[in-house]
């Protein structure tokens, strides 16, 4: 009974967080209109060709030599990715499971159960409107790609997170700095942006299913801008502390059809009440006993 109650709250908080804060109505419209369910997103790219517009790609090169891929890109939401990383979005290894080491699998399963309880140690970071990190933000929120000289900047809608990805060959940060969005270094291979992300916080969660990594995680992303309308994204996670081998999660995004669309302010923490609400429900359940 408890679990069912928590599940309801969890379903509610997803909606609440999407629409939280000052932009509630607009944000909800946006999520609903942009929400196309594609269970196979990321695992197939054959229909990319169908969407390919005519003409050369990239349409132009920027003054600093980058291919111009700027614009707002919408994820083709994979339910598998959102609820817990499953076959819908894991493209490697072939069994499409995260290759957890035995101790780590145990912890993941505990967290998967704990994510639906108001347990300080196990509650999903999303429930508190905390940052999602990389790659979780890549597979369920619209994002805007900006290309100022010498860098690629990703502006995410959810949690007003951003990433500044320098394209020079500057070294990574020192070990010992854990950041919610990590620290990114990138370079272009044709129209594919290759990014290495380190210094990610070990408090990060990848899904509602309690998926996690340690502070030794390295994420290698490939932002493959296939054509004017299609972005094929993959992230390979390497973490010898937690996984027996590297594994890859893939997702697909399409260019927002409305060229005048703007990302709205996302006020998440400002409207966050779910952790307290879940705690309140737990108290009530205990009193009824």
């Amino acid at each position: 009974m408890k679990t069912i109650t928590y599940a309801c709250v969890t379903a509610a908080f997803c909606g609440v967080l999407w629409g939280a804060g000052a932009t509630m109505l607009r944000a909800q419209d946006q999520e609903l209109s942009g929400l196309s369910i594609d269970l196979g997103a990321g695992s197939d790219d054959e229909n990319a060709a169908d969407e390919a517009p005519q003409g050369p790609w990239p349409k132009k090169m920027l003054n600093d030599g980058q291919p111009d891929v700027q614009g707002i890109w919408d994820p083709l939401v994979s339910l598998g990715c959102f609820a817990g990383l499953g076959p819908g979005c894991i493209t490697d290894p072939p069994d499409r499971k995260i290759p957890y080491l035995p101790w780590a699998l145990k912890r993941k399963m505990e967290a998967a159960v704990g994510t639906l309880t108001p347990n300080a140690a196990q509650m999903d970071t999303r429930t508190r409107a905390w940052p999602d990190g990389v790659p979780r933000l890549n597979y369920y929120t619209e994002l805007q790609v900006l290309q100022p000289p010498g860098a690629v900047v990703i502006l995410y809608d959810v949690h007003h997170e951003f990433r500044y990805i320098p394209l020079d060959s500057r070294p990574h940060l020192d070990d010992g700095i854990g950041l919610w969005m990590g620290s990114s270094r990138g370079h272009w291979e044709g129209t594919t942006l290759v990014v290495e992300v380190r210094n990610l916080s070990d408090r990060m969660r990848f899904s509602l299913g309690g998926d996690f990594a340690s502070d030794e995680l390295t994420v290698t992303e490939r932002w493959d801008f296939v054509n004017e309308n299609t972005l094929q994204l993959s992230a390979t996670l390497t973490d010898p502390k937690v996984y027996s081998q590297p594994w890859t999660v893939s997702s697909k995004l399409s260019r927002d059809e409305d060229p005048t669309w703007e990302i709205m302010e996302y006020a998440g923490v400002e409207g966050e009440r779910d952790a307290a609400l879940m705690l309140e429900i737990l108290e009530n359940v205990d009193e009824e006993k």
Partner: peptide, 21 residues
């Protein structure tokens, strides 16, 4: 806002917590 002492829900009684290894 993600510092431990600022978040509602962080007032969970200790007896209910089972920290991960």
């Amino acid at each position: 806002y993600a510092f431990e002492d600022r978040t509602p829900g962080m007032t969970v009684p200790l007896s209910r917590q089972s920290p991960l290894p």
